[in-house]
Write a protein that binds this DNA or RNA. Structure first.
Lengths: 117, 117
DNA sequence: TTATAATATTGCAATATTACAATAATGTTT
DNA sequence: AAACATTATTGTAATATTGCAATATTATAA
């Protein structure tokens, strides 16, 4: 008797089964799915003109953790930013946020009238 | 020599460090952070009047997996639903979606003018 | 050049998420 | 009642996420 242990993709999100739009909205949402990253966006929004050097001091987490969250926000295209001297200059990418707003508006449009549940 | 291995919260999101609003938006976003759950919402939105019995057949994942995703959407208050006979009747909770739209609109408002990054 | 300051990366432990087979629970048919 | 249909739960394996200490990188200041 011989056993073939076939287990290919347990634990991985099956992105290939879904549309590009579904995957994109999910990725953006996922990046927003942590309070620290929401807090970072709130701070960036509160600071005018992108003069933002000390995000680390504003977020109640250790510096490497904040750095990691910033990286994820940038990967998801939710913030733009560059290093300027020995500090960073990040700001919100309004386009991505608006993409979400536009998508969710469509999603909520029909569901307003639903009274059965 | 004696070692005290103190490691309390490694791996857990530190929700207590953030505001209620930040946590709520993050939880909603997190629930939206998977293409299958986006697909479920799209399907629910496409079907009028909540006559939705066969979500499982519409999502390209195994039935237990779909059931799990539905549970998460319900936990996050993104869908409402009840069992009706031997089928389910789910529909989108427009209030939660609108909560996100409202929040993101505020977040994107200031960032439109940012030109430094 | 040698600090100093700010951010990034690495490595690791702990927890969370994803997916599904097997099974349970529950209502509907026959 | 027995078979069927539909959804939920349990258990488990694999991967992902979270958080931080230690360290690296890079630019500025002394």
């Amino acid at each position: 008797m011989q056993y073939y242990n076939i287990s290919i993709s347990v634990g991985i999100t099956k992105s290939e089964n879904f549309t590009d739009v579904q995957n994109e909205i999910a990725l953006l949402s996922k990046a927003l799915g942590h309070p620290a990253r929401i807090a970072i966006l709130e701070y960036l929004n509160g600071v005018d003109n992108c003069i933002c050097g000390d995000i680390v001091n504003e977020i109640p987490l250790a510096q490497p953790t904040v750095s990691q969250h910033l990286k994820e926000l940038k990967n998801a295209n939710l913030i733009k930013g560059t290093i300027e001297g020995n500090s960073i200059c990040y700001c919100i990418n309004g386009n991505s946020i608006e993409k979400l707003i536009f998508y969710f508006s469509k999603l909520a449009s029909k569901s307003k009238n639903s009274t059965c549940c």
